[in-house]
Design a protein around this nucleic acid. Structure first.
Length: 587
RNA sequence: GCCCGUGUAGCUCAGUAGGUAGAGCACUUCGUUGGUAACGAAGAGGUCACCGGUUCGAAUCCGGUCGCGGGCUCCA
């Protein structure tokens, strides 16, 4: 595919960049269409995205909603059909400002002001539409063949909540109509995996208007949660962790000492007890610190790795709430490590490896970010530099790829974040390792070193799942509710064909139950096809036992797995196999 | 918190021009004893999110509140 670069030359585009160019050009063509239909439209940023593009636009008093999409798409198609030629030209800063002012593009004028002094300022033009852009772009509008507008939303100018909110119009674009159709179909399929939908169908959890952002876990969801925590306890015990539990409510003075009151109070719930102010913990660390500080420590004891499944409450903005992914109370699979400086890198590496092993267990794709010092932070520059260096050293030692997320660290220290994908490809922060010099200072934590002097330990905060609730949401979408047997709330559904095999079904189920298998009997007065349908599409059980007169007579069972394959087996054989599958936590 | 959209039975959704509500599934009962993705019939179930306004009359129109959805901001 030939594209137009911003120095004016036309060249073959590297294959891996083609879609990006198509999508970016689609944004320009959409802007042109909108400008034709809404002359007052003032455009801000309009980049390509993973599957498409968007343009942020200020429409003054006018509004664009999805109802207007057919008209905009029709105009875009018309522009494509006109087969306008893309051209490019460069301007000096003054000329650029003059051009954009003349065309009433105030956001572009502001953007020019933000560009580096030596930046080349180039403009792409197709037909009457001119846009400041570094390109490259398609050569002709006809080269855009497959696109669709997908929605509108609000977006702050330059991503700053103190700025004006613009209208963002999103679209998707592909090289061919077939790929576009395939993508739209994929999105439809992905929506069926939504954890909110599956959570309801499988009776895992529920939300109520009476408690927005505070999930209710139902019996099936509790099995899932507890099974995950059993796994967590096992691997943490092996990795040398101990477990503690600290109070949900602690007095306000503690949160002042920790720094939470100064840096996090907008997110904290509080209450009054005996006329004194108390806070509901938004994080577990101060509790963990009090446990450490409760007695003297020797250098020989370190590192101390104290785990805590801690329920935290945070006042999240209601517009941010999202199923189990963003809630107002959640369990962190937390741990605080108190380490000597010479142990730091090894401990970070150990934590990162532990998190990686958990994600591999479930087959998750993830990416890593190193988040650095935020504006609102505590502590000295030197400590922050040391801390950021410490995390980088560990990541480099592991040979791990990571992005740097400037200014996104915790107020007490920088962090390594692990981001997992949901069914629609949105990413959510789950695991994190945070390095903290501040909390040990604020609480005057010490250990006695080999030479008898008092030293300050370094503190690591870390989670693997992150939020157990969020992790469960990701798991539900990852497996589309078809959990591996060890996690499945119902592992075996026993389906008698008729009343004649009902007693036998209960006998078999009792035997499985005695072997510790999570089993259910569907002895309703329904036909076998109906029961199978429900067991696979609603309960999503790994195994069904189909028991009719044939099995009663033979004294065996028919085992139907998720693929629909059915085999005749003895009950004992089946119990032996499924027990092994569960205890090995096979995926 | 901000922008847009939205809120009718447990779930998925109809409800045309304002005249106090419907379907399918689920549920209950009865019949049916059925062999690998929906057996038949009957019944029960809703102050149409909430508050206020317009109107002789509001699920329907208007305002506010709350919830939910897609984003932004923020975050595990």
């Amino acid at each position: 595919m030939k594209v137009l670069y911003n120095d004016g030359h036309v060249d073959e585009c590297p294959a891996e960049e083609e879609l990006h160019v198509i999508r970016h050009s689609a944004a320009h063509i959409m802007a042109q269409a909108i400008k034709r239909l809404y002359p007052e439209a003032d455009f801000a940023y309009g980049p390509a995205t993973d599957n498409g593009f968007y343009y942020d636009v200020d429409l003054g008093d006018k509004k664009i909603s999805e109802e207007d999409f057919p008209a905009i798409e029709a105009e875009m198609k018309k522009i494509c059909k006109e087969n306008l030629k893309f051209t490019v030209f460069e301007k000096s800063r003054e000329e650029a400002v003059a051009l954009m002012e003349e065309r009433g593009e105030k956001y572009k004028v502001e953007h020019i002001g933000d560009l580096a002094d030596d930046a080349r300022i180039t403009f792409y033009q197709q037909g009457e539409y001119i846009d400041m852009c570094v390109g490259p772009h398609l050569c002709y509008t006809k080269a855009l063949k497959a696109f669709k507008l997908t929605g509108t939303s609000g977006a702050y100018w330059k991503g700053d909540k103190d700025n004006k909110m613009l209208t963002r119009i999103n679209g998707v674009a592909f090289a061919t109509k077939e790929e576009l159709e395939e993508h739209l179909h994929m999105i439809e399929e992905a929506k069926k995996r939504d954890h909110r939908k599956i959570g309801r169908e499988m009776d895992l959890f529920m939300m109520r208007d009476e408690a927005p952002g505070f999930p209710f876990f139902l019996p099936n969801g509790m099995i899932l949660k507890n099974t995950l925590l059993d796994y967590w306890r096992e691997i943490h015990h092996k990795a040398g962790y101990v477990e503690i539990s600290t109070p949900l409510i602690m007095n306000k003075q503690l949160w002042k000492t920790s720094g939470h009151w100064d840096h996090y109070k907008d997110n904290m719930y509080s209450t009054v007890i005996d006329d004194e102010e108390y806070c509901i913990k938004p994080m577990n660390c101060p509790g963990g610190v009090l446990v450490y500080a409760s007695k003297p420590h020797s250098y020989r004891e370190l590192p101390i790795r104290a785990g805590e499944i801690g329920l935290v409450h945070r006042h999240e903005l209601r517009g941010a709430l999202h199923g189990l992914f963003r809630v107002r109370c959640f369990n962190q699979d937390d741990a605080h490590l108190f380490v000597r400086p010479d142990q730091l890198t090894d401990e970070i590496v150990g934590v990162v490896n532990l998190i990686d092993s958990v994600y591999q267990k479930f087959g998750f794709k993830y990416h890593v970010e190193l988040s650095t010092r935020p504006d609102d932070s505590m502590g000295s520059d030197e400590d922050w530099e040391r801390a950021e260096e410490g995390l980088k050293t560990a990541l480099n030692e592991l040979g791990m790829d990571y992005e740097v997320n400037e200014g996104d660290g915790a107020f007490y220290g920088p962090k390594i974040d692990f981001h997992l994908e949901d069914s629609l490809g949105r990413t959510w922060q789950c695991g994190t390792v945070q390095l903290d010099f501040q909390m040990p200072i604020n609480f005057n934590l010490e250990y006695t070193d080999a030479d008898g002097t008092k030293k300050r330990p370094i503190m690591l905060h870390r989670v693997c799942f992150g939020s157990v609730e969020r992790f469960i949401g990701i798991l539900i979408e990852h497996y589309a509710g078809k959990f591996p047997t060890w996690l499945a709330p119902v592992q075996v559904d026993v389906l008698p064909v008729s009343e004649k095999s009902r007693d036998y079904a209960h006998q078999v189920a009792d035997k499985l139950d005695a072997a510790g298998i999570r089993v259910k009997v569907d002895d309703r007065d329904e036909k076998i096809g109906y029961k199978i349908r429900e067991a696979r599409s609603i309960d999503r059980v790994p195994y069904m036992l189909i028991l009719g007169e044939k099995e009663v007579e033979a004294g065996n069972i028919s085992v139907r797995d998720r693929s629909g394959e059915t085999v005749q087996r003895s009950v004992d054989e089946f119990i032996a196999d499924i027990t092994a599958e569960i205890s090995e936590r096979r995926s």
